[in-house]
């Protein structure tokens, strides 16, 4: 019986890390801009999942729950990290093999956390405005504003880059 429980827990670890590990790591790395912090948050999120053993309606519910826990932890970590660390653009090749993406990733990582999280959930994870509002426990108008703000900031940074040839 005990063996069965242990075996089941091991299977659960494999499944959640295989299914959601990369997705959570991407989100956390872009928010925190630090590999070790991102790894810690991913790990803590999974531990919370395994210890709380929440019940989910479906896999989308499970995914949204994990994103909520991870983004909350990222926000806490950002709040307490007085010196904000940032990945050097040259280090991005460690995580993203395609060089063409590095410029955009760098711009994205440098955005303020709030619009950055909303952009990630909308453009990367494909969530609609009302779904993001539920995940982040904010209003839909706040989500819209953050999306708009994120887009504007990204556009502005691209414009400056092209203008000054940076």
């Amino acid at each position: 019986m005990l063996q069965q429980v242990v075996w089941s827990a091991e299977l659960d670890v494999e499944r959640i890390v295989d299914t959601y590990g990369n997705m959570l790591f991407r989100i956390c790395l872009v928010i925190l801009c630090n590999e070790k912090d991102a790894e810690d948050v991913v790990q803590d999120t999974f531990i919370t999942y395994l210890t709380k053993s929440p019940t989910f309606n479906d896999s989308e519910h499970e995914k949204a729950w994990l994103i909520t826990i991870a983004t909350n932890r990222c926000k806490n970590m950002r709040r307490y990290n007085i010196i904000r660390k940032h990945i050097d653009i040259n280090d991005l090749q460690l995580y993203s093999k395609n060089d063409k993406n590095h410029g955009l990733l760098d711009h994205l990582m440098r955005l303020p956390t709030k619009p950055k999280v909303v952009l990630l959930l909308h453009y990367v994870e494909g969530y609609k405005v009302d779904e993001i509002a539920k995940i982040l426990t904010i209003t839909t108008s706040a989500v819209k504003k953050r999306l708009q703000r994120g887009r504007e900031l990204l556009r502005e940074r691209y414009r400056k880059e092209n203008e000054y040839g940076l």
């Binding site: 827990a9 091991e10 670890v13 494999e14 890390v17 590990g21 990369n22 790591f25 991407r26 790395l29 872009v30 790894e39 991913v42 790990q43 999974f46 531990i47 395994l50 210890t51 460690l94 995580y95 993203s96 093999k97 395609n98 993406n101 955009l104 990733l105 994205l108 952009l119 990630l120 453009y123 990367v124 887009r151 990204l154």
Partner: peptide, 29 residues
């Protein structure tokens, strides 16, 4: 802005990190 998806999804955990996370959460569990 759709390129954001391509850029972010190109990020992957290293195998070493993935193994480490599995080992650590297994231990913590």
């Amino acid at each position: 802005f759709e390129k954001i998806k391509d850029a972010v999804t190109s990020i992957e955990m290293s195998k070493a990190m993935e193994d480490r996370v599995k080992e650590n959460i297994g231990k913590k569990k």
